[in-house]
Simulated scan of single mutants.
Amino acid sequence: MDIKKNNDNPEVKSLYDLYKLLDLRLDLIDPSEGFTIHNMKDIGLTMPYQSPSYRPDFFSFLFVKNGTGKYTVNEHTFDIKQQSIYFTNPSNYRTFSWQSIEEIYLITFDETFLKKYVGKDIFSYFPFLLTETIQPKEVTAEFYGIAEKIYLQILQEYKSQSSFRYKVIGHFLAVLLYRIKEYFWIDYNPLQEGSRSSQIVKSFKQLLENHYRDLSSGKADKVFRVQDYADAQHLHPNYLSNVIKSKTGKPIATWIVEKTISEAKSLLQNTSVSIKEITYQLGFSEAAHFSNYFKKHTGITPVQYRKELDTCK
């Protein structure tokens, strides 16, 4: 494989997109939902392997039972060792390299999957999902055994043909997240970690999450502008914009768009909520405005999105 042709720091919306970019096996991935799990040994990497730089739009966990390598997130490089767990979230550019892979399970999921199958207040229960960079965690054999039982149950369900498999996976994933929280981050607060700029980014992410929760519950009726997020942290909007762009690679406007579309997709999956209701819940004044906005950023209208969901059922 010619890595040089991919050295333009591509952005990928799913693991399926990433593996397609890297010319890896795609038959392990079901692109119908924002969730995947498999042993990385099965994807066809030739050792040693070095990836190009890319920026994903999904969360990921690596459970390393037997294998070694390195991950680089922005300027931070971490060694991946045996019997360790590694987590990354969307936004930052990263590369990975592997010296050996025998048994390393990769789980990825997007925000829409989390909110559909795990819970609407996912980031309140698991605030560590919002942090920027987390060092790989070496764990005891006892804890790894606990995690392994859960992710292998998830894998078994993922390979099944059950019409309820993603609902079951959502429950197992919640159990896994609670176990990881209990072991690593029982008192974790991402706002207390890192440099001042890191704190600004984490605070912005939480403000973004809280605001859209308020929109969906009716406590707010207008989408925040950059000025509103800046005022909440007592910052000049230009300074906030510069910090967010430099730390995450994405302008605030992009974060707001992606969050709006993610929330819209979650609401559209609930067919008991009309498109008119969704329009107002997301702060749009007219259904036509919401429909145009959704189509601009997804390529299809909200009505077409719902029809596609019905087709996949």
Rank of each mutant, 00 (worst) to 15 (best):
S163Q: 14
F164Y: 14
F164V: 11
F164Q: 10
F164D: 12
F164C: 09
R165G: 00
R165Y: 06
Y166S: 09
Y166R: 13
Y166V: 07
K167V: 10
K167E: 09
K167R: 14
K167P: 02
K167H: 09
V168P: 03
V168Y: 15
V168A: 13
V168N: 12
V168Q: 10
I169Q: 00
I169C: 01
G170C: 12
G170E: 03
G170V: 02
H171P: 03
H171W: 12
H171I: 15
H171F: 15
F172I: 11
F172M: 12
F172Q: 14
F172T: 04
L173S: 12
L173M: 13
L173R: 12
A174D: 13
A174T: 15
A174M: 14
V175K: 09
L176M: 15
L176R: 07
L176D: 08
L177G: 11
L177Q: 12
L177D: 12
Y178S: 14
Y178K: 12
R179G: 02
R179T: 11
R179A: 14
R179L: 09
I180G: 01
I180C: 01
I180E: 02
K181W: 01
K181F: 06
K181Y: 00
E182N: 14
E182G: 08
E182M: 12
E182R: 15
Y183C: 02
Y183L: 06
Y183T: 06
Y183H: 11
Y183F: 06
F184E: 05
F184M: 08
F184Y: 11
F184T: 01
F184S: 08
W185P: 01
W185S: 01
W185R: 00
I186S: 08
I186C: 00
I186W: 09
I186L: 10
I186M: 07
D187M: 07
D187Y: 11
D187N: 13
Y188T: 00
Y188G: 04
Y188W: 05
Y188K: 05
Y188L: 04
Y188E: 05
Y188F: 14
Y188P: 03
N189P: 00
N189L: 00
P190K: 06
P190M: 06
L191G: 06
L191Q: 00
L191R: 03
L191A: 06
Q192W: 05
Q192V: 01
E193P: 00
E193F: 03
E193L: 04
E193H: 07
G194T: 03
G194M: 04
G194N: 08
G194P: 06
S195L: 06
S195A: 04
S195E: 07
S195C: 02
R196H: 09
R196L: 08
R196E: 06
R196P: 02
S197T: 11
S198M: 05
S198P: 01
Q199A: 07
Q199G: 05
